[in-house]
Amino acid sequence: MLHDAWIMARKDLRIEWVTRVATGQVLPFGALVLILFGLALNPDLVIVGEQRRSILAQVAPGLFWITVLLASLLALGRSFALEANDGNVDALKMAGLDPAGVFLGKAMAVAAQLLAIEVVLGFGAFVLYGTPLANFVMLVCAVILATVGVAAAGTLYAGIASGLRARDTLVPLLVLPILSPVLLAATLSTEAAVFGGSGGWSWVMLLGVFAVIYLGVGMLAFGLVMEET
């Protein structure tokens, strides 16, 4: 199964390396969303409290993760658009790949692309929103675990909607509610990581729990989802 996953992930990432959809389209889209948030939320508004901080800097963790979720929808759509044509799903089955391996591989490829995008968007958020950084290790752990959760739940649901003309409208409706707890935990742990504060690690652990649950459910259910008859 792990071998099949590795084959799938390598295939998807190789296609990405050639076509550059994630870096050429999804990443600029994410950057654009970050800029639009800046326009929508007045960057001059300042919260006067113990520390003077702009509204943008204060809500930056939430904005960053909303941006990642929106970008993940595009990455997921792309991941399954690759399999949509020429009976690719049948070909995968004919090749004898384990459905759990296919799921794991596609989720890994999506996670790898999202991580690359997040690094750039993270820098963007620091520069554009003026966010501080208190705990780098916590931030890295939160980002990695949240990304695995997003990729796993997203891959399962994008698989469920695959093969449909209405796929592009159905996937957000299915995926975003499932990811709402991930958004919550990711935002809170990122807040703790950038501003400092207690309780961050428990949210990071919760992200780990989510990642394990979504990976497990996905591996169990993907076989049922991929059966075509």
Binding site: I160, A161, L164, R165, A166, L170, L173, L174, P177
Partner: peptide, 9 residues
């Protein structure tokens, strides 16, 4: 969302 899946082709 569940009901949306039920209406798919």
């Amino acid at each position: 969302g569940y009901l949306a899946i039920r209406r798919m082709e």
